[in-house]
Amino acid sequence: MPLELPPPVAAYVAANARLDVDGMLEPFAADAVLLDNGAAFRGHAELRRLFEEAVVAVKAIFTPDTARREDGRLVVEGPAHGDFKGSPIRFTYRFTLEDGAIKALEIRA
């Protein structure tokens, strides 16, 4: 049974499955912050570069299998498969949503 995710998160996950950078960016606020294993990326230009280099280049597709609310954030977990060492790797994504957009995302392996 597919997870029921809020629209911006569902849009991000669906775009990631297509390796669609524009679609992955669309649900993020213009000033969004993404923390990827401690490295910070701010705004659409930096997020685009991250998605092109660390997602599309290695065909990394995140397939969430659990979701819960924790400390005001949506915590989504699941494996990512792709052309990278150790694939698949299980990730935890912590989304902060604001005004119908992804305001912040923290990703940890």
Rank of each mutant, 00 (worst) to 15 (best):
M1F: 00
P2G: 07
L3R: 09
L3Q: 11
E4C: 04
E4N: 10
P6G: 06
P8C: 07
V9K: 03
A10G: 02
V13K: 02
V13L: 10
V13R: 03
A14H: 01
A14R: 05
N16P: 08
N16C: 12
A17Q: 12
L19F: 04
L19E: 10
L19D: 11
D20F: 05
D20G: 14
V21P: 09
D22E: 15
G23T: 11
M24F: 03
L25E: 07
E26G: 08
P27D: 12
F28N: 05
A32L: 00
L35M: 10
L35T: 13
N37W: 13
N37Y: 13
A39E: 14
R42A: 13
R42P: 07
G43W: 04
G43I: 00
H44V: 06
A45W: 05
E46G: 08
L47C: 04
R48Q: 07
R48W: 02
L50E: 10
F51T: 03
F51A: 08
E52M: 06
E53S: 14
A54G: 12
V55Y: 14
V55W: 09
A57H: 01
V58R: 07
I61V: 14
F62R: 08
F62H: 09
F62G: 07
T63Q: 15
T63C: 14
P64T: 01
D65R: 05
D65K: 03
D65M: 06
R68P: 10
D71R: 15
G72M: 08
G72T: 11
G72K: 13
G72V: 07
R73K: 15
R73V: 03
V75E: 09
V75I: 11
V75K: 12
V76A: 09
E77A: 00
P79M: 00
P79H: 00
A80V: 07
H81M: 09
H81R: 15
G82S: 15
G82K: 05
K85Y: 00
K85L: 05
G86V: 05
S87C: 11
S87I: 01
P88W: 11
P88A: 13
I89T: 04
F91A: 04
F91N: 12
T92H: 06
T92W: 01
Y93G: 08
R94S: 06
L97D: 10
L97F: 12
L97G: 11
E98W: 01
E98V: 00
G100C: 13
A101V: 11
A101Q: 15
I102R: 02
A104K: 14
L105V: 04
E106P: 02
I107S: 12
R108T: 15
